[in-house]
Nucleic acid binder design. Structure first.
Length: 507
RNA sequence: GCCGGUAUCGUCUAGGGGUCAGGACACGUGGUUCUCAGCCACGGGACCGGGGUUCGAAUCCCCGUACCGGUACCA
């Protein structure tokens, strides 16, 4: 007998960008669903009308898809358990509240907000738990009905049973127990008729037949309230798994002041989706055999909730960068080229790339990508192509002094390239360099470094064997959407002229 | 305050009554290369504290501490 397939859900609130902590929760749900042949549902928890926006919802969905996470039922996908937006389920919450009211599990509460606030402060001051006093619990149904009918504002509260333990076996943490004495009667329906979180989740998870709730640890103390609700309805609760939260380097919750926190920001900085997903899976979980660089598809087969760590994890951008480098090195050339285009555009180096431009970029961007952390950094690595200036290079003291003491190499290079054809491949470049060596007697660093300075305008960068042919290929680009790339010959001539204008080095 | 959770190198983790406490990122040193990055090799670096149980505790138990979460008509 095979067990029923599991049903999981990810239920974000569309109140901002998708945070990496939530992305990790989504990923864990996805890994388990895909690894077990289960169903993943995407539900939108937009009952907070003030803060929910449809742009946020769109952004979150986009970020999820970008990371490679898909879902089987839910928003923009449909399914038999919809609607999947809480704002479209209000009638369902009302109907079930009526049922709870009838069964005596819930009651109307007319306490004004200021009263509640005062109670709360008094309780805190007296060292008591600041839970709802229960003032309206004793109201008779008739009295409550009259007051409601007379137009008085009311919320519907759940009647939490007194002095009982509520326990559950959390899949990641083990048995967790709360006593109901510390739980105030939670609001089910607000005075405007909209459902509160703890109520809506229960109705939705139950009606959507969710079998496993994987969510952040911040929800662990909501769980007993929700369990009580399941009990009142006579429903069987799902299994719960609370995963720890993601922290910043200072061990406080990851926030803006730590830098990027949302999936969209990491994407904008040029992290690859497969790298972010791989890294996030490793934060709080490990396959156990020491392997770390595994695509999510493989991780899914290995993932077990029981193996998820109990403690909060610090988000380590350095390690993410390492994972990203790995995927950068194996990414398809044309994909990298296209990913890099927006960054070039931002620099004003490219307008609209032609097919030839993309072919050119597909040659050189992957080389640059092998030595950077994120696609964003490709511009610094390839600035020598599009942003060459001999005079600007020679403004840098270190470059100027080295160039001045290497005038022989620079002059010989300019002369040599003036008579040679373009250095379109490694061997042609090496041949030219060999002739400069013969003419000057310089070799090794004393030969190549000045050549680097003259041809790239930079003291460091890609190896010349690929940089120089790339310069020539860029210079040969015919009708192009790329800013003109000066050839090696032009560069050498310009650089030599600038150096000779400088005169001899100061003693 | 009260309730709940958590605790192995700086970070992510493996392990778990007797181990040289293993790996990865980061860091340091050396090598490779015209340079930076990379890559390779080597190296330093941890069981929160105190009690208890035990021949033996990082591992089991208790207490404490620290941190995180909750204590909402936010989710």
């Amino acid at each position: 007998m095979t067990p029923d397939p599991i049903r999981l859900r990810f239920a974000p609130s569309p109140t901002g960008q998708l945070h990496v902590g939530n992305a990790r929760t989504a990923l864990f749900n996805w890994l388990l669903a895909r690894g077990s042949g289960g169903t993943l549902i995407l539900r939108i928890e937009d009952t907070d009308v003030e803060r929910s926006t449809s742009e946020s919802e769109r952004g979150i969905l986009e970020d999820l898809r970008w990371m490679g996470l898909d879902w089987d039922e839910g928003v923009e996908r449909g399914g038999t358990h919809g609607p999947y937006r809480q704002s479209e389920r209000l009638h369902i919450y009302r109907a079930h509240a009526v049922e709870l009211l009838a069964g005596g599990h819930a009651y109307h509460c007319f306490c004004p907000a200021r009263q509640l606030e005062a109670d709360r402060e008094a309780a805190l001051a007296a060292g008591r738990p600041p839970k709802y006093s229960g003032r309206c619990r004793l109201l008779t149904k008739d009295e409550a009905r009259h007051r409601v009918e007379s137009g008085e504002q009311a919320v519907i509260r759940f009647r939490v049973p007194d002095a009982r333990d509520v326990s559950f076996d959390d899949i990641v943490r083990g048995r967790v127990t709360f006593n109901t004495d510390v739980i105030g009667d939670p609001v089910l329906l607000r005075s405007d008729g909209s459902p509160a979180y703890n109520y809506a989740v229960v109705i939705d998870d139950a009606l959507m037949e969710i079998t496993h709730v994987i969510r952040g640890e911040d929800h662990i103390s909501n769980t007993p309230r929700q369990l009580l609700l399941y009990e009142a309805f006579g429903w069987r609760p799902p299994a719960f798994a609370h995963v720890s939260l993601v922290m910043g380097p200072d061990h406080s919750p990851l926030s803006k002041r730590h830098g990027a926190t949302s999936v969209a920001e990491f994407r904008a900085r040029g992290f690859l989706p497969e790298a972010l997903a791989n890294y996030l899976a490793l934060l709080g979980w490990s396959p156990g055999d020491g392997r770390e660089l595994l695509p999510v598809g493989e991780l899914a087969a290995l993932f077990r909730l029981e193996d998820v760590g109990h403690s909060a994890g610090v988000f380590d951008v350095e390690k993410l960068a390492w994972v990203n480098r790995h995927y950068l090195k194996s990414a398809a050339p044309e994909r990298l080229a296209r990913l890099a285009v927006p960054y070039f555009q931002r620099e004003g180096w490219i307008a609209d790339p032609t097919d030839a431009d993309v072919r050119f970029l597909s040659q050189i961007v992957p080389v640059a990508a092998a030595s950077i952390d994120r696609v964003e950094q490709v511009t610094a690595r390839l600035a020598f192509l599009f942003d060459y200036s001999a005079s600007r290079a020679l403004d840098v003291p270190g470059i100027r002094s080295e160039a001045q003491s290497s005038r022989d190499v620079i002059a010989a290079l300019a002369d040599e390239l003036g008579r040679a054809g373009p250095l379109l491949d490694r061997d042609t470049f090496r041949g030219a360099a060999a002739r400069v060596r013969e003419r000057t007697g310089q070799k090794g660093r004393a030969l190549f470094h000045p050549i680097r300075l003259a041809l790239t305008g930079e003291a460091e960068g890609l190896e010349l064997d690929v940089a120089v042919p790339a310069i020539e290929a860029g210079a040969a680009l015919q009708p192009s959407g790329i800013r003109r790339v000066p050839s090696a010959r032009e560069r050498a001539a310009e650089f030599a002229r600038c150096v000779s204008d400088l005169g001899p080095p100061e003693a």
